[in-house]
């Protein structure tokens, strides 16, 4: 862990160095400007309630995501536990895939 902290330190020094060099070398001051909008001035802030069309995908994703919590340890012990582990895990995955099929049929993966 010590070496990792050392690496993070090296990165921090590097990034700080870049910013320091930039502060010295670049023109003084910070230029303010509007965001790029093909030459127009924005009428409203871009930070807004961004309508995410794929929100249905996120919910399916969360379900599968949790699968991983158990699947990583499972991968390590399959050889010890034997066929039962494979059968159980793939039965579980099969159930989840049925959910995916349903979501697919409902058009959850096509939003545009």
């Amino acid at each position: 862990m010590g070496a990792v902290l050392w690496l993070v330190g090296v990165l921090a020094v590097g990034v700080a160095g870049v910013y320091a060099a930039s502060a010295v070398l670049s023109p003084r001051g910070v230029a303010g400007s509007g965001p790029f909008l093909s030459g127009a001035w924005p009428r409203e802030h871009a930070m807004s309630r961004f309508h995410v069309r794929w929100y249905a995908v996120t919910l399916v994703f969360l379900a599968f995501d949790m699968e991983m919590v158990f699947m990583y340890p499972w991968a390590v012990v399959v050889a010890e536990v034997g066929a039962m582990a494979v059968v159980e895990m793939f039965a579980f995955l099969g159930l989840l895939l049925v959910g995916v099929l349903y979501a697919w049929r409902e058009g959850a993966f096509r939003w545009a």
């Binding site: 060099a21 670049s26 023109p27 910070v30 400007s33 509007g34 965001p35």
Partner: peptide, 9 residues
């Protein structure tokens, strides 16, 4: 490195 810094709105 020599490019100016900028800030949006």
């Amino acid at each position: 490195l020599v490019q100016g810094r900028r800030r949006t709105l």
